[in-house]
Amino acid sequence: MAEQVALSRTQVCGILREELFQGDAFHQSDTHIFIIMGASGDLAKKKIYPTIWWLFRDGLLPENTFIVGYARSRLTVADIRKQSEPFFKATPEEKLKLEDFFARNSYVAGQYDDAASYQRLNSHMNALHLGSQANRLFYLALPPTVYEAVTKNIHESCMSQIGWNRIIVEKPFGRDLQSSDRLSNHISSLFREDQIYRIDHYLGKEMVQNLMVLRFANRIFGPIWNRDNIACVILTFKEPFGTEGRGGYFDEFGIIRDVMQNHLLQMLCLVAMEKPASTNSDDVRDEKVKVLKCISEVQANNVVLGQYVGNPDGEGEATKGYLDDPTVPRGSTTATFAAVVLYVENERWDGVPFILRCGKALNERKAEVRLQFHDVAGDIFHQQCKRNELVIRVQPNEAVYTKMMTKKPGMFFNPEESELDLTYGNRYKNVKLPDAYERLILDVFCGSQMHFVRSDELREAWRIFTPLLHQIELEKPKPIPYIYGSRGPTEADELMKRVGFQYEGTYKWVNP
């Protein structure tokens, strides 16, 4: 592979701008107003304001973009700056750019259920340069409990009458099928589907988006991507930290609602779906819905739930269990780990287990898709061969690698495990991989909904998990304890083995 010439960040961002501006969906010269509902909250200060700053800094926003914060707290732009700027990672050389960014910011205080507050917000936006005809993007960085009041008031008082209007809704989209349907029906009564952007930030990850290209742009994968060759698929999300004093919020939802029903299920769809007619948003989402419709409700015998306990040999936070978090209700049975087996009941995947695993306070930070292939028929190497695996590593250190057998150097035919490896950090030294939120917010500006969740996708996802969630809430089974920093409950490994996964433990990928 030829040595790549190092590029400056300015040059890299210039390439990104060229890609972005050559499309006809990006209205570079139009006025846009980006409204952050819930501007005083954690999500706004840690993710949304920093993301908008990065896009502005790199010249990736339309030229005439204004940012308006809205929340109940009586704040000023200076207050917003004070709480969000520490997350910007701005350099001293960017000081003038930073001043320009905050000059485009404003803030309006108001209630979430008060019509007069929204009329005041609308008047404020109209007073901005060309504000009355601007395109408006409303980001709901809010708890779902206020979605209905907020969307109703936005629709009645704050819509642009000339430009387009788009609304970005953060997960969780309800707690179960019934609450999700209620919320979807409410929002759909106010906005068209092409105006609604239900954001799952995992769909903005580079390697998640790469799944489609790997599958449908490489001839070698087509013939082997089926039940005849693939023994099982494992989708993993692991965090090495616990709730760390923020367990009160987590306890309301648990690990299945927080990660599995959305992030992991979306990745499953991209692995299992048929080739779409095109890369058009609805063509892709149509195929994802077909996959979900082929999955039956989760069966309790295919589920393992766990909850982390303190590690007596650990240090600091590792010595504390979930129930030691003062914000967690006493005696909570909320799971911090889950392993679930699903089956896609169609011709391509009949009988292939899709194993979804996620948890907190585990032994490493990792998100990946792992396809394990069947054993080689007619073994001539005296059971020395391990199964081939194709691994798409989402985070950290984005990579695609194939675990395969090669001859060990020497005189004899002794096979050993090795890999074919594409590590993004080595291959793409001159490429700026956008943060997931950067990519998705740019998608909203461009009107691309491919990486957002459609209402029928959402409904099918909740259909699969709601009976299990209701059973857990009714019966309150005690989750299996696992030690902070471990791989999780051993019962999860036993479940995976029972459905056909072979864990060798003899080879570990190392970032080159």
Results as ranks from 00 to 15, higher is better:
6 A>S: 15
7 L>G: 07
8 S>K: 15
13 C>W: 07
15 I>N: 08
17 R>P: 15
17 R>S: 15
18 E>H: 12
19 E>K: 15
20 L>M: 15
20 L>Y: 15
21 F>C: 11
22 Q>I: 15
23 G>A: 12
24 D>V: 11
24 D>I: 10
25 A>G: 15
26 F>S: 10
26 F>K: 14
26 F>A: 09
28 Q>K: 14
28 Q>S: 13
30 D>F: 09
32 H>L: 05
33 I>M: 10
35 I>E: 03
35 I>L: 06
35 I>C: 08
36 I>R: 03
36 I>A: 01
38 G>P: 02
38 G>I: 03
41 G>W: 04
41 G>T: 03
43 L>C: 04
45 K>S: 10
47 K>H: 08
47 K>N: 04
48 I>D: 14
49 Y>G: 02
51 T>P: 00
52 I>L: 09
53 W>N: 02
54 W>G: 08
54 W>A: 06
55 L>E: 05
56 F>R: 02
57 R>L: 07
57 R>S: 06
59 G>C: 06
60 L>W: 07
62 P>I: 02
62 P>T: 07
62 P>Y: 04
63 E>P: 13
63 E>S: 10
64 N>C: 11
65 T>G: 03
65 T>L: 11
66 F>E: 09
66 F>Y: 15
69 G>F: 02
69 G>Q: 04
71 A>F: 00
72 R>H: 02
72 R>L: 00
73 S>E: 05
74 R>M: 14
75 L>V: 14
75 L>S: 09
78 A>W: 11
80 I>H: 06
80 I>C: 06
80 I>Q: 08
81 R>S: 06
82 K>L: 12
85 E>I: 10
86 P>V: 12
87 F>V: 06
88 F>H: 02
88 F>M: 15
88 F>N: 05
89 K>E: 15
93 E>S: 10
98 L>F: 07
98 L>T: 05
99 E>W: 04
99 E>G: 10
100 D>Y: 10
100 D>C: 10
101 F>D: 04
101 F>L: 01
101 F>S: 02
103 A>V: 14
104 R>E: 01
106 S>A: 11
107 Y>G: 00
109 A>C: 12
110 G>Q: 02
110 G>D: 06
111 Q>T: 15
112 Y>L: 01
114 D>I: 11
117 S>I: 08
117 S>K: 10
117 S>H: 12
123 S>V: 15
123 S>L: 14
124 H>F: 14
124 H>K: 11
125 M>F: 14
125 M>R: 04
128 L>C: 09
130 L>W: 14
131 G>I: 08
132 S>P: 12
134 A>S: 14
134 A>H: 15
137 L>P: 04
137 L>C: 15
137 L>V: 11
138 F>M: 08
138 F>R: 02
139 Y>L: 06
140 L>S: 07
141 A>L: 00
144 P>G: 02
145 T>L: 06
146 V>K: 10
147 Y>C: 01
153 N>A: 11
153 N>P: 04
155 H>V: 07
155 H>K: 14
157 S>W: 10
157 S>D: 15
158 C>V: 13
159 M>W: 09
160 S>G: 13
161 Q>M: 14
162 I>T: 14
164 W>H: 07
166 R>Y: 00
167 I>Y: 09
169 V>I: 12
169 V>L: 07
170 E>M: 03
170 E>F: 01
171 K>V: 04
172 P>I: 00
173 F>C: 06
175 R>Y: 12
175 R>T: 06
180 S>I: 02
180 S>L: 06
182 R>I: 12
182 R>C: 12
183 L>V: 05
183 L>H: 02
184 S>G: 07
184 S>R: 02
186 H>K: 12
187 I>P: 04
187 I>D: 00
187 I>L: 11
189 S>D: 11
190 L>H: 11
193 E>W: 02
194 D>V: 08
194 D>R: 10
197 Y>I: 02
198 R>G: 00
198 R>W: 04
199 I>M: 08
201 H>K: 01
202 Y>D: 01
203 L>T: 03
203 L>Q: 02
203 L>M: 03
205 K>D: 00
206 E>R: 05
206 E>F: 09
207 M>D: 00
210 N>R: 04
211 L>Y: 04
211 L>D: 03
212 M>H: 00
212 M>A: 04
213 V>Y: 14
213 V>W: 08
214 L>H: 07
214 L>N: 00
215 R>E: 01
215 R>Q: 01
215 R>A: 02
216 F>A: 04
217 A>D: 03
217 A>W: 03
218 N>T: 03
218 N>D: 04
221 F>D: 00
221 F>N: 08
222 G>F: 09
222 G>C: 12
223 P>E: 08
223 P>L: 06
223 P>M: 07
226 N>F: 06
234 I>K: 10
235 L>S: 03
236 T>I: 05
236 T>Q: 10
236 T>V: 06
237 F>S: 06
237 F>M: 11
238 K>N: 00
238 K>D: 04
242 G>M: 03
243 T>E: 03
243 T>S: 12
245 G>W: 07
246 R>W: 02
248 G>N: 06
249 Y>D: 05
250 F>V: 00
251 D>I: 01
251 D>C: 03
251 D>T: 06
252 E>F: 07
254 G>I: 03
255 I>P: 05
255 I>Q: 05
